[in-house]
Simulated assay, not measured.
Amino acid sequence: MDYKDLLKKLSESYGVSGHERGIYDLLKKEFEPISDEVKEDNFGNLIFKKKGTKGKYKVMLAAHLDEIGLMVKDIDEKGFIKFTTVGGVDQRTLPSQEVIVHGKKDLLGVIGSKPPHLLSSEDMEKAIKIDDMYVDVGLQKEEVEKLVSIGDIITVKREFKELLNENVSGKALDDRAGVVVMAVCLEELKKVYHYHDVYAVATLQEEVGVRGATTSSYNIEPDIAIAIDVTHAKARGVSRDIEVGKGPAIGKGPNIHPAVYKGLVDIAKKYNINYQIEPLPGHSGTDAWAIQVSKKGVPTGLVSIPLKYMHTSVETANMKDIIESGRLLAHYIANLPEELEGHLCY
């Protein structure tokens, strides 16, 4: 499988929280050859199962499919579309973006605001408020209203780009990069024996409350789970020890089971996989938060891909980190003992 091409396809697809279904066909096409079973649960999460040789225990992987975006809230008298946000959109990045309004048909538009020439010197020093922005699709109000309704979704139009040194940039790498990690893991597991059944779940609505992880972990009842997400990496003005290109970040803290953490670190050392440690003193802000407390509780880990410029349309990650994350998970699963009782004691 060409993982960079898969990430490109996923990044350029559109699936704001609650509207992820447009990516289902692509995911099924890519994951069916590396899965034994593919199903969709009641909430809409896509579950790709890889059977183990024993099948006594269940290992769950979770990476969220949804992305942040915008929603139509009004159409003014001149046909300009007013909007609000879905998820944690950084409104400072919105002016001058090309967008697609997903109405009765897709409409290309641009986000406009008052030109700088017409701003007061005081306003020039401030970030533009979302209430002062609008989408211009080039139509009059009557024409817009025939095609666009209140509540329709708007997404940023952005092409996936390859940068130097295996770095890549695009929208929604949070967390479509994590979905690619699951693909790497399942493909690696085809080459080795592993005792336990693996459930790789593309979860929905993480950006608005880890909802897909909540429902899927409740239904699957995993014995072990590992969430896959992105984490902030060192960048200009961002002081972090975690860096892009230096391997996956393994989470450590109260959201993480210590035996799962230790197992991931031990495997990284055993197979010479570069890794970084991410201290998480509280809420991890990921699907791991919901999975850990599902039903009777689930021993949960977290593997994160270092990412720059999170929640913008130019999120930047490194393909080596993505592939190494998948290898780490595959080796971890393949090295789990046949009996897990006692293995996961604190």
Rank of each mutant, 00 (worst) to 15 (best):
L94S: 11
S217N: 03
Y134P: 01
A225K: 03
V201N: 06
L340N: 03
E12Q: 13
L280Q: 13
K161M: 15
Y346V: 11
H19D: 14
V180M: 10
S284C: 13
G285M: 07
S313Q: 15
K50I: 09
E206Y: 00
H311D: 03
A249Y: 04
T300C: 06
V135A: 10
S239V: 13
V38G: 09
V59I: 14
V303R: 06
I220T: 04
V16A: 13
G251R: 10
I153S: 05
A317M: 09
E162Q: 14
E32A: 14
D5Q: 15
P337Q: 02
L118T: 07
S13L: 01
G69P: 07
V208C: 08
T286M: 07
S96A: 15
V144Y: 06
G237D: 03
F80R: 10
V303I: 14
G18Q: 07
Q276P: 04
G151P: 07
V181H: 03
E338F: 06
I100F: 12
V16Y: 02
G251L: 08
S113C: 12
E37C: 04
D41C: 08
V208F: 05
K8V: 04
M60I: 03
L26F: 09
E98W: 10
I305F: 05
K246S: 11
V16I: 12
E278F: 10
A183I: 06
I34N: 01
G245D: 12
A202K: 05
E278T: 12
N42Q: 10
V244P: 00
P33F: 09
E30V: 15
I75W: 08
N42Y: 13
F43Q: 01
D229P: 12
G88A: 00
D223N: 14
H64T: 01
A233V: 09
S304A: 14
Q292L: 02
D74Y: 14
G18V: 07
P281E: 05
E67A: 07
D25Y: 08
I154H: 02
A62E: 01
V110D: 05
S120I: 04
H311F: 09
V244C: 06
V59D: 03
V181Q: 06
N255A: 15
R236H: 03
G245Y: 11
D287T: 04
K9E: 12
A235K: 11
K171I: 09
H19Q: 13
E207F: 02
S113R: 10
V86Y: 02
E221V: 13
G52P: 11
S17W: 04
L65V: 00
V192N: 00
S304G: 04
A227Y: 00
D223F: 12
K191F: 05
S113M: 09
A233Q: 10
D266N: 15
V238G: 08
G151W: 02
D66V: 02
D132G: 02
A317K: 00
E206M: 01
L302T: 05
K39R: 15
K262A: 14
K234N: 14
E221L: 12
E243N: 05
S217M: 05
A225N: 01
P279K: 07
A233K: 12
I130R: 10
G263L: 07
A334M: 08
V38K: 01
A334S: 15
K54H: 08
K157C: 00
Y218T: 03
K58I: 07
H64V: 05
Y332E: 06
V144M: 03
F160R: 11
A202E: 04
K246N: 15
T214I: 11
